[in-house]
Each structure stands twice: as structure tokens, then as C-alpha cells.
Simulated scan of single mutants.
Amino acid sequence: MQIKLKLTVAAAIAAMAGLASAQDVVRIGHVAPMSGQQASYGKDNDNGVRMAIEDLNSQNVTIGGKKVRFEIQTEDDAADPKQGTAAAQKLCDAKVNGVVGHLNSGTTIPASKVYNDCGIPHITGAATNPNLTKPGYKTTYRIIANDNALGAGLAFYAADGLKLKKVAIIDDRTAYGQGVAEVFKKTAQSKGMQVVDEQFTNDKATDFMAILTAVKAKNPDAIFYGGMHPQAAPMLRQMEQLGMTNVKYFGGDGICTQEIIQLVQGAKTLNNVVCAEGGASLAKMPGGEAWKKRYDAKYPGQFQVYSPYTYDATMVLVDAMKRANSADPKVYTPKLAETNYKGVTANIQFEPNGELKNPAMTLYVYRDGKKVPLN
């Protein structure tokens, strides 16, 4: 009787193992700052990937004739380049099937070489420095407009839309901050604007009084800040303290968040902000508003900027796997170049260098404590 029971248990275990092997696991890596000042971005990006994986698992996807189950492996790069390459190497060693990330250009650019060397494709929906795609890695893709579009768009609006003449430029010395500031500067100067001052800070600073006092003495019409919202918010508060309430404040997608509304703590200078995001506004995205309703129901109060893009990035990776009939990066990576995917954010196709074809860009302002698209 005991022997028979053991045999029955063994048979059940064997049957379960058979079921498990019949369903392949495909792991999508995700990297972003999950800790530190930029953790709200990281969490938002992570939510986007998780939503995509839940949707895929509900669709009973088959790849190469086998039913697959998708899993996420999230790594924290803390917006630090060294931690970013370590996270990338960890995902390579774990042999994930593809990667969504990173958030920051300063982490994505060095990580892209790691992914190239180990042959795993990655798609960023957030890193915007144009240098990311310059090495020509066949594993690197971006599904959002780069800084050439963002910095130039803001400069055109400053010169042509608002007829501003004098601007001061501050950046946080990161790859993202310097990159977008440089594009803004060159475009503004080409439009006849005068750059009256240039100052530098870092992506951990919170006290900008000395910098702003120096800038105020040059009497600019506007400040352009190349950096992220954890620095932009206290800078805006300190501008109000210094009486700089008529100075326009420009920035890229790094400051163009929901969280900045809370962080400025009621400073009126928020009304002077003009920021740019790659991509259409949610209302103009093909599936933006319906997707956002689902997101808010699942992750109330957590939306920032990039989660629709990390959602689409996950879907684009899996779309290439389906078309290749394989989740093996060596097999499906070439299919990414042929992508023609109708996503939440856009109809996604790539240039030969991995950049998004025909990227949209949207300018935003803040009115009555709400982020409002200008175009």
C-alpha cells in the first residue's frame, strides 16, 4: 500500500513537471532607479512592464509552437552609471530573453555596450541622449523622441512662440542634462537668442541659491534647466524666494512630471514652466486614454511619464519573438529592425540605427496645479 502511494505521488510530480516543461518561461529584464530621488520614475516604468506582462499572460501566447509564460526581472540602477552596467551584466548572466530600460541616458549608454556584448536586445522608452544610438549596436532601440527633438522644440517655442531674447542655462552634468541643454543652447543661439549665463550643478543637489543669485544678476527672460524634477522643484521654490517670478523655466522630459506639482509646494513659479516630452500627449496617443484608465485602476497615483513607453517596449520585444517563432535573442533580435507594431503610444517602426521613425513631441505647461499639453 505504501509503495503504491509513493508511486502515485511520483506519477503526480512527473505529470506536473511535464506541464511545467510544456509551458516555457520567457523573462523580460527591466532596469530603472527603484531607489533614491528618482524612484518614482522607476516605479512608474516598472508598472508599465508589469502591465504588459499581465496582458501577455492573459493572451495565452505561443512562441515556436509552445505556450509561454512571461516573467519580469527588475534590477535597480539607482540612476548611477556603475550600478547600471552592473545591473545589465546581472541580466546578461541570468540569460533573460530581452530588456526594457534603462531610464537615464547616463545609465543606458554604458549599459548598451554590455547588452551588445552579451547579445541581448534592450529597448528604452525613456533615455533620450542622441549618443545612445551612435555606436550602431544591433541590440539597442529607443521608442521615444531623443533630445535633438526635445531641446530644439523648446528653443523654437521660446524664440518664436514667446519672443524671448535672453536665457540662462543650468545643467546637472549628467549625460541627459548636458545633452538636452546643449541642443537647446545651439538652437536658441541659431534663433538669435542670447545665452547670458551658464551654470552647473549635480543630480543630488537641493540648494541652488548661489547659482540662482548669479543668474538673477544677468536678468534673463528664461532659465533652461537640463536635469530631473527632484532638482527642478527646489530650484523653482528658490526662484520664488528670490523674486524671480517673471522668469520662464524650460526643461525636457526630466522635469515634465506629475510629481513636480507636489514637490514645488505651491510655488507660483510652477506656472512659468514649459517642458517637453517625446511622444504625443496621452489624449493624442492611439490607445493613451483607455490605457491610462487601466493603469490608474491598477496603480493609483503612481503615473509619471514613461510607463506607456515601457509597456510598448515590452510588447515590441514579444512581437519580434512571435514573428521569429523564438524567444532566443540570437534568433529574434534581427526581427526588431522590421518592427511595425501598433502600440499604445504610436505606430512603432525603427530607423536603421534603432531610433523611432517619425517621433512625436509635446510641449506642456502647468495651469491650476495640472499638467496641460500646449500642442
Rank of each mutant, 00 (worst) to 15 (best):
D197R: 14
V180G: 04
N146A: 01
G243V: 08
A217H: 02
A158Y: 03
E240F: 10
D203Q: 13
I255G: 09
M209D: 06
G266N: 09
D253G: 03
E240H: 10
K163F: 04
F156I: 07
F208C: 00
T187V: 06
M209Y: 12
G151H: 11
F200D: 08
F184T: 10
T174Q: 11
F224P: 04
K216Y: 03
R237N: 08
I255V: 09
D147F: 00
A158C: 06
P220H: 04
E277D: 12
F250I: 08
Q231N: 09
G161M: 08
A280Q: 14
A149I: 10
A168P: 03
K166Y: 03
Q265V: 02
E240K: 15
G179L: 00
G279D: 11
L212I: 02
D172E: 02
Y249I: 01
K216D: 04
F250K: 10
G151Q: 13
V196S: 15
K218Y: 01
G226N: 03
Q238F: 15
Q265C: 05
D253P: 03
Q189T: 15
C256I: 10
G254E: 13
Q262Y: 08
N246E: 14
Q194G: 03
Q194T: 10
H229G: 05
I170P: 06
F200V: 12
T269L: 06
R173A: 06
G151P: 10
T257H: 03
A188D: 10
P230F: 00
A276I: 12
M193S: 11
K218N: 09
A232M: 04
A276Y: 15
V247G: 06
A210Q: 14
G243D: 11
N271M: 07
Q262V: 08
V247C: 08
A205T: 06
V195Q: 11
D160C: 05
A159H: 08
G227H: 08
A155H: 10
K218I: 00
A210M: 04
A276V: 15
A152T: 07
K204M: 06
T245G: 06
K248S: 11
L212Q: 07
I261K: 04
G251T: 06
Y141E: 00
L263I: 02
I211D: 14
G279R: 13
D253L: 03
D172W: 05
G266C: 10
A158E: 12
M228Q: 06
I144H: 10
I143P: 02
G177P: 05
A217W: 04
G161Y: 13
